[in-house]
Amino acid sequence: MKKLAASFLAVVLLLGILTACGGKSTKETASSEKGGGDGYEDATIRLAYNLPQDHHISVGIEKFAKEVTEKSGGKVKIQVYPAGQLLSDKEMNQSILTGGVEMGLNSSTLWASTVPSMGIFDVPYVFPNYEAAGKALSGEMGDKLRSAMEEKGAKVLLFADYGYAQFVNNKKPLKKPEDFNGLKIRSIGDIPSELIKAYGASPVFMGGGEVYMALQRHTVDGATSGTTAMVQRKYDEVVKYLTINNYAYLEFILAVNKGYWDKLPEKTQKLISDTAAETEQWIREQAKSEDEKTAKELEEKGMEVYVVPENELQAWKDAAKPVYDVFLKQSGELGKELLDLAEHIK
């Protein structure tokens, strides 16, 4: 009887051990399938941006951060600081380059002061449609811009398509370049300032968060931006006229400090790069529909919208010619190469 009891106890213990082992195996498998963090080293990466959180680029960036964290099983944590909580757009680039923040999103326009070739996106009428911009960034142009950024100490993780830039003002409908004469227009960078001057107005540089108050107080007569930001920053409350001429295809750059990037394990680099590529494509798909939706929304909210007819665009392009010379002077041979590449993808 004692032998039988002992044998029974041995069987029970053996089953318990096998069940425990099996449970552990199942748990490990499930964890692995979810991206359990196997092989990833702990890392906490701060990511700052200034756009409103409901902007389509912001939604994409938040999605990117969440997916990297989840795919690494929480090992690679990307902590997001949205809407200027950590850095203003004016402070962002220097902070990325010095390692003050590991990762940040900022406009190509603001990067152009450090990497002049980034001004290509502000040169008027270079990208005639959304498809042309996508082809350029997926090809040789994108490669050349990434290399130029790395030379300065920042690695481009993705190009985020913002959409086309337009003009708003409080004085009158802007139906031809001559209508800009005498106006003060908020600018977003050097090349847009040159365009504003070429059209006869005075550029006033200021960050995105300052524009609403400036328009409200008539510190400026108008501004340039994309309609997506105009909706989110409630321009319809403080400005009357919107002119749609699609003069520049704005990009935002998600960049990481190059020195920090080079020290990350290869597995972590691949995870971030792959997720960034997926996010870039997702954002690109949103740009056109968001432009169309927000332009209509501004009109519905009471803004008077003027769309420059296709057969009148040449006058706008002709008046903008001096801006090309400024861009080439600033960006040199690389700028010329980029303009040539853009010409061939139209």
Rank of each mutant, 00 (worst) to 15 (best):
T19V: 10
C21D: 06
G22E: 07
G23N: 08
A43V: 15
Y49Q: 06
I61H: 03
E67R: 07
V68Q: 00
G74V: 01
N93Y: 09
V101S: 13
N106A: 09
W111M: 07
Y130N: 08
G134F: 10
L137V: 01
D143T: 05
S147E: 05
E150V: 13
E151R: 06
K155L: 13
L157Q: 02
Y162P: 15
Q166H: 08
N169C: 01
N169T: 06
N170T: 05
K184H: 11
I188W: 01
I188A: 07
I191Q: 00
P192F: 05
L195P: 05
A198H: 01
F205K: 13
G207V: 11
M230F: 15
V231D: 08
Q232A: 07
R233I: 03
Y241K: 04
Y241L: 03
N246H: 14
F252G: 02
F252D: 02
Y260E: 02
K267A: 01
K270R: 05
I272F: 03
D274L: 03
D274V: 00
E278Y: 03
Q281V: 11
W282F: 11
E285V: 07
E290Q: 13
D291P: 01
K296N: 06
E300A: 13
G302S: 07
G302F: 15
L313P: 00
Q314S: 13
K321M: 15
D325A: 12
L328M: 10
L328K: 14
Q330F: 10
G332E: 03
E333K: 14
E337K: 07
L338K: 01
L341E: 15
E343H: 14
